[in-house]
Amino acid sequence: MNILVLGTGCAKCKSLEKITREVVAEMDLDAEVTKVEDIVEIMSFGVMTTPALVVDGKVVVKGRIPDKNELRHMLTK
């Protein structure tokens, strides 16, 4: 699984990255989590509100931080 955390470095983006990594570790997923900070690259996903989460090329959440339960759900699909 390929997970991207999109965010320019705001506080919310950092906390999304943190809980994503935590959930991946908890669920023992075979996933690579990468932080994308380049604004042009972020825009290429059609995202205008950070933070956003991209799982296998698909934007699953943007503009907010999901709670861990929701996140687990998003990563099992």
């Binding site: 042009v40 825009m43 059609g46 995202v47 934007v59 943007k62």
Partner: peptide, 10 residues
Amino acid sequence: KTKMGDASDT
């Protein structure tokens, strides 16, 4: 020159 992707389906 920025190209924006389409995320309307999300």
